[in-house]
Amino acid sequence: MSANGTVIETGIIFDIQRASLHDGPGLRTTVFLKGCPLRCAWCHNPESQKREPQVGQSGKVYGRRMSVKEVMEVVRADRSFYESSGGGMTVSGGEPTVQFEFCRALLEAAKCEGIHTCLDTCGQVSHEGLQELLPWVDLFHFDLKHWNAAGHRQWTGVDGSLIQENLDWLLEQGARIHLRCPIIPGVNDDAEHAAFLDRWEEHPGIEYLERLPYHTIGNAKYEDLGMTVPQF
């Protein structure tokens, strides 16, 4: 049960990575929630797209139901590493806010225990939801996919307007933000997108902008799930 008395249901987790070095400052435990409102053509975690658990052709199960208590037992086990490295817990996906109540409850539980929290989000979340999450998030890892609405819709399924509005609002609130920007051949590796990112990198409210190279690590998972493997 959360602090406001809401009964928290379990959530669907597809991975928990301990001692992560790339999902925020210090050593972190990254909790990956299933479900995403975007369908990025280059997605490297295809098992994250659907909210429900899935079984691959190999028999591997992608996704299991866990409670906040069970997740926090894993997170809490590495508290000493967080304290020595400046790390903490990152909630990622998919898009973790698809499982909104569970996401909020995880962030709240960690924050109330003094554990640094990071939310890795694509920004496609209601404005009201973002307002509710803000008190429980120390750092936002915020994705930027494409420089214009048409390209954003073509390659992700949404036009990016809500994402932009949410980023602007977070900046107005003084939130800590690191931008994460995948660079995909033939999609956004052009001069227009480069100039778009350069402008954001110079924004005084953005602490850090990271350009992420395209990789094919997720291809075996596409095949296991019977999905078409991206080609770029």
Score class of each variant (00 low, 15 high):
Ala109Phe: 01
Leu170Pro: 06
Ile163Pro: 00
Leu171Glu: 06
Val91Glu: 08
Val137Trp: 07
Val158Ser: 06
Asp143Ala: 11
Leu134Arg: 14
Leu170Gly: 06
Pro96Glu: 01
Leu133Gly: 03
Gln131Glu: 11
Ala109Gly: 03
His127Gln: 15
Leu119Val: 09
Glu128Leu: 14
Leu162Asn: 05
Gly157Met: 11
Leu144Phe: 08
Phe102Trp: 09
Glu128Cys: 05
Leu119His: 05
Glu108Ile: 11
Leu107Asp: 01
Arg104Tyr: 02
Cys103Gly: 02
Gly88Arg: 05
Thr121Ala: 04
Leu170Glu: 02
Cys118Trp: 07
Trp147Val: 06
Leu144Trp: 05
Cys118Val: 15
Val98Arg: 01
Asp168Ile: 11
Val158Ile: 13
Glu128Ser: 15
His146Phe: 15
Val137Phe: 08
Gln173Tyr: 05
Ser161Pro: 00
Ile115Tyr: 05
Asn148Asp: 15
His127Met: 12
Gln131Leu: 14
Gln173Ala: 08
Gln99Met: 06
Ala150Val: 15
Leu130Glu: 12
Leu107His: 00
Phe100Gly: 09
Phe142Cys: 09
His127Arg: 15
Ile115Gly: 09
Ser92Val: 03
Asn148Gln: 04
Asp138Cys: 06
Thr97Ala: 13
Gly94Arg: 05
Cys122Glu: 08
Asp120Glu: 08
Leu171Pro: 00
Ala149Thr: 08
Leu133Arg: 02
